[in-house]
Simulated assay, not measured.
Amino acid sequence: MNLQYGSFFKYPRKVFKHFLSEIYPLVIKIYPLPKVKSIPETIDKILKDKASICRFGDGELLYISEKRSLPFQRQDDRLRKYFIKILKSENKNILIGLPIGYHSLGNLKKSSKITWRAIISWTYPGVRKILKKDKIYYNASMTRLYMDYEDTSHSGDWFKKVQSIWNDKDILLIEGEKSRLGVGNDLFKNANSVKRILGPAHNAFDQFDNLLNFAKKQSKDNLVLVAMGPTAKPLAYELALEGFQALDIGNLDIEYEWFLKGAKTKVKIQGKYTSEAKGGRNVADVVDEAYADQIIAEFI
């Protein structure tokens, strides 16, 4: 476990975060931010071009810039090199997503604005050399459509727009063993079918080759959705190169659960891995016949 994530450093982290937030205007003046499309533009691009997407959040950018392990993924040189390779990719069918803070701080809650100002001040100077000056990036927060916004009146329409991507499609879902996307809600109600390949909840990159090789044997008529933290990026990337449409959809299901509940804070969702909520990484088993019938392989 990394000490920087422990409770001992809670208050020093808070003070340092506010300091980083204050110097944000200077940082982006010295290092202008890349061009990042909006969330609706990103979803439209996926719909129009049947594009794939690899989404990078603050965790992955720290993983690159500081060679830092994350609470759910230890540092791995091969994975880190994959991130750099993907960020530098010029494949027009594979969109590269950067977080909402790189697009705009407008309409974010005050706490989210401070967080993103601090994250960008800390990580961007270290990763900017990997990013390409004239490249158009897309919005990694296309799966985070509710919790961080001051005005959430757009959230319902955004969720419907994302759901339209798999309208009448056969979904091949590659997810962590405790993620259970769509279980207990109607996220995939408009899909034709759902099949699931399960991987580890932690350190999923250990099973990367097994997951990839099994997925590659499936029909390319499937829309591949990947929800497996950092490992989702190379999985979506490699499958897209193989001719699949592959989307790294991250926390979409958890955000949808919060939206349905009208949650005001990041609460634990019973029976699902909720990494950002207190106690959310301790997940009870779920008895669900329909879910169990959808599982076609496990690499745990």
Rank of each mutant, 00 (worst) to 15 (best):
M1E: 14
V15S: 08
F16M: 12
E22K: 13
I23N: 11
V27K: 07
I28H: 02
K29V: 08
I30T: 14
Y31F: 13
Y31C: 11
Y31V: 10
K35P: 06
V36W: 00
I39R: 05
K50T: 09
K50Q: 14
S52F: 03
C54F: 02
R55E: 04
D58Y: 05
E60G: 11
E60Y: 04
Y63Q: 03
I64H: 02
S65C: 13
E66C: 10
R68T: 12
R74C: 14
Q75S: 13
Q75T: 12
R80V: 14
L87A: 08
K88F: 06
S89K: 02
P99W: 02
G106D: 12
K109F: 07
K113Q: 15
T115Y: 15
T115A: 15
W116I: 03
I119G: 04
I119H: 04
S121G: 03
Y124I: 00
P125L: 02
I130Y: 14
L131S: 06
K132Q: 11
D134W: 08
I136L: 11
Y138W: 11
M147L: 14
W158P: 01
K161L: 05
K161H: 09
Q163H: 13
S164E: 13
I165C: 05
N167G: 13
D168H: 15
D170M: 01
L173Q: 03
L173T: 05
I174N: 01
I174P: 00
K178D: 13
L181G: 09
N190E: 14
S193Q: 00
V194W: 01
V194Y: 05
V194R: 02
I197A: 08
P200H: 10
H202L: 15
Q207K: 12
F208T: 00
N210Q: 08
L211Y: 01
N213Q: 14
F214T: 02
A215I: 01
A215W: 03
A215M: 01
K217G: 12
S219E: 03
L223R: 04
V226P: 00
A227V: 09
A232H: 01
P234C: 08
Y237L: 02
Y237M: 01
E238T: 04
L241P: 09
L241Q: 15
E242C: 14
A246R: 01
G250I: 01
E255I: 07
Y256V: 10
E257D: 13
K266V: 13
Q270A: 15
Q270Y: 13
G271K: 09
S275V: 10
E276Q: 11
N282L: 11
A284I: 15
V287F: 10
D293Q: 14
Q294A: 12
I295N: 06
I296D: 08
A297K: 15
